[in-house]
Design a protein around this nucleic acid. Structure first.
Lengths: 131, 131
DNA sequence: CCTTGAGATTCCAGTAACTGGAAGCTTTAT
DNA sequence: ATAAAGCTTCCAGTTACTGGAATCTCAAGG
């Protein structure tokens, strides 16, 4: 398989696939013309990576997960632990965004949004303690 | 004022302040020794920027907001529009994370997390349609 | 007066995970 | 034969800083 086919089958752009090779996530063979020659196994890995990235795992997490995926003697606890840590970080991020959203929504609501210059949003940003 | 004082008064690290000058957000004067000489106005701007960044506005948004802040003839509608767009993006992000969180939490729950290799998380990642 | 030490300066590199584009080779289709 | 598509590598850019090196200035202690 050439990169184009693997790209459409895995859903990842060719650029990304080359990048994944660069950073050592995959190791496709080469044909005599210098083209990458992907095996089914490579495709599986790429699919795995695509899905992992979709779930928000970092590349380093993906590296770990891929290694566990390939290790027939892994303990599922290791996988679960990576996923749990990621889940915690997602929860943190959500909480952060929600708090931020609250403040911002309040400010937006306070602003008339007309042709006059008075603006509670700018007032808040300028550092005055919000009333 | 030297950069150190502005840093502690604005809450921004000196590095960040220099960076903001680099990209043209502020324009402090210089003393004869080559040191930046900040006026109160610069400090206000930096405080404004710090608060805006805390609320998640991008640097480009900050540039726009700062310009509006300085423009005595602005229309509050312009400010509101920037903030509303940002709010929409935050909502999108939250929705994305929550959906992701749902999937991930389900997978984590399904995984025993013991010393055996069987792992529903890896099975999902490997691309098999989840049962 | 000299010498630290703190604080200032610039510049270069690195972060995360790609993405875009240039220049050039191979293969395929007309 | 030639043009288009697809592949290759390499360099740069994205976001918003942050760390570190080499150098310079300033304030205080002995």
């Amino acid at each position: 398989m050439n990169i184009g086919e693997v790209a459409s089958r895995s859903g990842l752009p060719p650029k990304t696939i080359r990048y994944y090779e660069d950073i050592g996530l995959i190791n496709p063979m080469r044909g005599e013309n210098g083209y990458r020659a992907f095996r089914e196994e490579d495709l599986h890995k790429l699919t795995f990576l695509g899905r992992s990235r979709t779930l928000g795992f970092s590349i380093e997490d993906c590296r770990t997960l891929l290694a566990l995926y390939e290790d027939r003697n892994r303990e599922s606890a290791q996988v679960k632990s990576v996923a749990e840590e990621h889940l915690r970080q997602i929860d943190d991020k959500i909480a952060q965004l929600q708090s931020l959203r609250g403040t911002l929504a309040h400010l937006v609501q306070c602003c008339q949004g007309d042709d006059r210059p008075d603006c509670p949003i700018l007032e808040d940003l300028s550092g005055r303690p919000a009333k």
